[in-house]
């Protein structure tokens, strides 16, 4: 046995922080083994031993799916205003400003056009790091425009979700983004253009209950948490512990809500095969 392996579970598993930490040695959140950064990177930020999938940013994820240098980003600087004048412990305006500064992103989704094995796709990928990947007006509008680009180019749409749900700080306007994205997907469907939804850890709330569940094909990464209500809320409501594996990707596969659970290493190939079937 390796001398550095922990015999017990972490005292405080850092459940909220699943991004890849800095430094050359990385401890897997799944099996607690140490790996060199190169090993993790080569495995597309999954654990070479236990297949744990690390959370990555939208740019990295698009890199997994798309042909090198084929991505052209659109609406990059679309940013939130503060229509409600929302203030909790912090003003929403300030929260947005500090998020932009911290992440270098303007909101929780990156959208554009790229190629998969030469096939053009309109694509968007979410950033959980930006206010929990929450959907407000900007995410809704960027998805709406991604649909428009798919229709204009007569190409498929791919959306990669990773989100805590609708953004509270825009109140009912965030709720309406669920309606907005669904309405746009009706337009896409009218044109008979395929939509592939890829769900990463976590995909919950208003994002799951709108565009994420509406794919012609729904794909999830292994063990990704996917659901409507968060596990904490459910536990509070029913006052019981939740069953093992509840709301994980494999559970959704079993219950019939995703078409497949696909390892990140096989994601590009799987999407490619599907796109070929749609196109031929």
């Amino acid at each position: 046995m390796a001398w550095f392996r922990r015999s017990k579970q972490n005292i405080d598993p850092s459940s909220g922080k699943k991004e890849v930490p800095d430094g050359s040695w990385i401890k897997c959140n799944g099996c607690n083994e140490m790996f060199h950064r190169n090993q993790i990177e080569a495995a597309l930020y999954t654990c070479p031993k236990c297949n744990y999938h690390f959370r990555v940013d939208s740019k990295t994820y698009l890199g997994f799916l798309l042909d090198p240098k084929s991505f052209r980003e659109y609406d990059k600087k679309l940013r939130a205003t503060d229509p409600l004048g929302f203030v909790d412990s912090k003003a929403y305006k300030d929260r947005i400003d500090s998020m932009i500064e911290k992440t270098g992103l303007y909101d929780a989704i990156r959208c554009g056009v790229g190629k998969i094995d030469g096939m053009t796709v309109s694509i968007g990928a979410m950033d959980f790091a930006f206010i929990g990947g929450s959907m407000g007006s900007v995410v809704g509008e960027k998805i709406a425009r991604a649909v428009d680009r798919a229709i204009k180019r007569k190409c498929p749409l791919i959306l990669v979700s990773s989100s805590g749900g609708a953004r509270m700080m825009e109140g009912a306007l965030s709720l309406m983004q669920m309606a907005k994205t669904a309405a746009k997907l009706v337009q896409l469907a009218e044109k008979k253009l395929p939509y592939i939804s890829i769900m990463l850890d976590p995909t919950t709330g208003g994002v799951t209950a709108s565009f994420a569940m509406l794919g012609d094909v729904n794909i999830a990464e292994p063990k990704a948490l996917i659901g409507f209500a968060g596990p904490r809320v459910i536990k509070q409501t029913i006052g019981k512990d939740l069953p093992e594996g509840f709301q994980q990707a494999e559970f959704l596969l079993e219950k019939g809500f995703v078409d497949m659970v696909v390892h990140r290493k096989d994601m590009r190939e799987t999407v490619l095969r599907l796109l070929r079937f749609f196109q031929n």
Binding site: A209, S210, F211
Partner: peptide, 26 residues
Amino acid sequence: GAYPGIGAEERGQAESIARNLFEMCR
């Protein structure tokens, strides 16, 4: 709100709402 329960999740609370949004739009 929609019910946050085990059965609701098992039977696809999110999918059922998403489907309604889509179908009601058209």
